[in-house]
Design a binder for these strands. Sequence first.
DNA 1: ATAAAAATCAGCCTTAGGTCTGATGTGAGC
DNA 2: GCTCACATCAGACCTAAGGCTGATTTTTAT
Lengths: 209, 209
Amino acid sequence: MNAPIKVVIIDDHNIVRRGLITLINLEDDIEVVADSDNGEEGRRLIMEYKPDVTVLDLSMPKGSGIDVMKKLKQHQSTTKIVVLTSISGSDILYSTLALGAKGLLSKDIDADELLTIIRKVQAGGEYIHPSISHQLTNLQSERFTQQALTRRESQVLGLIGKGLTNQAISDNLTISLKTVKTHVSHILSKLELNDRTQLAIYAIKNEVV
Amino acid sequence: MNAPIKVVIIDDHNIVRRGLITLINLEDDIEVVADSDNGEEGRRLIMEYKPDVTVLDLSMPKGSGIDVMKKLKQHQSTTKIVVLTSISGSDILYSTLALGAKGLLSKDIDADELLTIIRKVQAGGEYIHPSISHQLTNLQSERFTQQALTRRESQVLGLIGKGLTNQAISDNLTISLKTVKTHVSHILSKLELNDRTQLAIYAIKNEVV
DNA sequence: ATAAAAATCAGCCTTAGGTCTGATGTGAGC
DNA sequence: GCTCACATCAGACCTAAGGCTGATTTTTAT
């Protein structure tokens, strides 16, 4: 028999993490070697344990899942990433694929299903849960041409998502009101949205910080 | 030794549910007698099994946690409810307390902590997780005087949360633009917010439909 | 070194959003 | 019958928001 598949789990919900660990360790061909509730530590653990598969939650306080994936890509980590999420926003899902996630699934899947996916991904396969993939189909063509937001623009978008007015944002970032308006205008056209209300909704659903 | 504490679990995430069941069933003084992934079935299970404690998730597709609690209150159920949530909106949390939840905790607690809380609540105690209770302290005094939204106002708020303009809302509800503005104005003053962007954020965080 | 992208700001203009005051019809409750 | 909350609408008003054009400076990549 082969060595068991080494797995690292990164999720900020203790209960979810404990649940996953318990379930996975019931199997004898898969083993959880480490786990963490935040992105920073999680990244260190991956470097250290070099797991075959990493189960990664997207929404976390310190260092989001996206950040973790970016960093890992820089370091050319070979761990295969299965993204676990309840997020509905579509752009963030697309980002994970662009960053090379092998699996993509929502938190309401069966536990058995997760095990199957881990094995499949470890064997070199890919898997995207149907409830998520249908969100992506339309989007492939549309968003492909979409320019990414600059750092400043993301920052502004994040403040809009907190309900700040342009004036408040200008104070907050100590730049002129004009500049804020320019940024907002750019963000709107890049995301193909119509007003700041839709931006706020977008920001929340895609967890822009 | 006493009979084990009977628990019903209602949460739409399979993994969370399986995790909870596995963890709880490791204890010999607590027993999960039933579980469900939606509010409707969950309510039936509670009627049928009459559990001592119910662990209830707030955000679910069919019949939210709030609905379940309302129905149970009508039927004068004696099950003690522990609300499990990752929602940050404060009004919805306050609602759960008003509806008599005995426990209130976020999903990032320790598993052991949950067990302790179930025992405490069963014994007649109450528990609110610190990460949540601080959201409530300010609010007790402020929101007490807060008028509830009317049916129409909630409806309008819901559409704002979907990113509609006043004109679009007016078309959608087939009422005049003036009327929409009136409603929006009332909602703003009732919720003590400043503009529609903040309303949209509020609507999402409090899951206004 | 040079080109390209990002960040900054200004003026001008239009409109959606929001406030205030006030008015009318309707239904529930006392 | 009377009252009160609710939903509807109107006019007048003010401001934040966003579009468009154009410009300067800083950063970044090649």
